[in-house]
C-alpha cells in the first residue's frame, strides 16, 4: 500500500527526516515510536502533503507517486490524518463540514454523493458504533471541544470517510484512560484486511489497546530499529536512550 524509500524532509533548511524507509501492506498496523523532536509529526505532515517542507526521496502509495499529489487529492485517494491538535473552525457546523468532506471524496471517486438524509443516517450509525454523543455534531467544528472530544471527533470522521491509510498523529496525547479506550475501540473496529494504519506515538500505552503488527523506532529522522509489538514494551522499560 505504502512504500517509503529514503525520505528526506527539510524545514527552514533544517533536515528533520534523514532518509526514512518504510513499507506498509494492506491490513497492517504499524506503530512509529520516538522521542520528542525525532521527526514523528513531520512524517505525518509530509505524508498528508502539508506545505512548507522541502521533500526528497520516494513515496509510492497504491502504486502512485504520493509526493506529486495535492493534499486533498491524497485525501480523495484514502489517506486520513488524525491530527494531534485538531483545528477549531468557528461558525462551521461539524455535520456540514463532515458532509462536505465526505461528498468531496465521494465525488472524486466518482461515487454518488449523499443527500442530507442519507448522510445523517450514516452519521447516526457511526456515532452509535463509537458511543459518540451525536449532539456534538451540531456544534461548531472543534470549537470549545475538550481535548477528548476533539480526538473522538477525529476518529468519527475517520470512520465516516473510511480511509485506506489512516495516520494517527499522537492521538493518545491529552487523553484520559476512558477516552483512550473509546478512541482505541474505534480504531480497532475499523481494522480490516484492506485498511492500514500508521500510529505515531511517544508512549507505549496506546499500543496496549491497539496492538500493532510492527513497531518502528524513529530517532533523529531515521528508523533505527523495527520489530514486533514486543519492541514497544522493551522501549517502555528501557527508554529511547538504549537505542540512540
Amino acid at each position: 500500500m505504502l512504500q517509503i524509500k529514503n525520505l528526506k524532509a527539510k524545514i527552514d533548511n533544517k533536515e528533520i527526516l534523514k532518509g526514512l524507509n518504510l513499507d506498509i501492506k494492506p491490513g497492517e498496523v504499524h506503530a512509529i515510536m520516538g522521542p520528542n523532536g525525532s521527526g514523528k509529526s513531520t512524517l505525518s505532515n509530509v505524508l498528508s502533503g502539508k506545505k512548507g517542507y522541502s521533500v526528497s526521496g520516494e513515496v509510492k502509495y497504491l502504486n502512485e507517486n504520493l509526493l506529486d499529489l495535492e493534499i486533498e487529492e491524497r485525501a480523495h485517494k484514502g489517506i486520513f490524518l488524525a491530527f494531534q491538535y485538531p483545528l477549531e473552525i468557528p461558525g462551521v457546523n461539524t455535520n456540514i463540514f463532515l458532509k462536505t468532506s465526505l461528498n468531496a471524496i465521494k465525488k472524486a471517486k466518482g461515487e454518488k454523493e449523499l443527500d442530507a438524509i442519507e448522510f445523517l443516517k450514516l452519521v447516526k450509525q457511526k456515532a452509535a458504533e463509537l458511543k459518540f454523543d451525536e449532539k456534538i455534531l451540531s456544534r461548531q467544528l472543534n470549537v470549545g471541544f475538550s481535548g477528548g472530544e476533539k480526538k473522538k471527533n477525529e476518529i468519527l470522521q475517520m470512520s465516516i470517510l473510511n480511509p485506506k491509510l489512516s495516520i494517527l498523529d499522537e492521538t493518545d496525547s491529552g487523553l484520559d484512560i476512558d477516552a483512550l479506550k473509546t478512541v482505541s475501540e474505534g480504531v480497532n473496529a475499523l481494522r480490516s484486511k484492506d485498511s492500514s494504519f500508521l500510529i505515531i506515538t511517544h508512549y507505549q500505552r496506546l499500543l496496549d489497546y491497539i496492538e500493532p503488527d510492527f513497531v518502528h523506532v524513529l530517532i533523529n529522522g531515521q528508523i533505527v530499529k523495527s520489530g514486533g509489538s514486543e519492541l514497544a514494551l522493551e522501549l517502555e522499560s528501557k527508554g529511547y536512550e538504549s537505542l540512540s
Binding site: G49, K51, I71, E72, P86, L102, Q157
Partner: peptide, 11 residues
C-alpha cells in the same frame, strides 16, 4: 485551518 480542510478532501 486550510491544511485541515484539504486533508479532509476539500480543495
Amino acid at each position: 485551518q486550510l491544511f485541515y480542510c484539504n486533508q479532509r478532501g476539500l480543495n
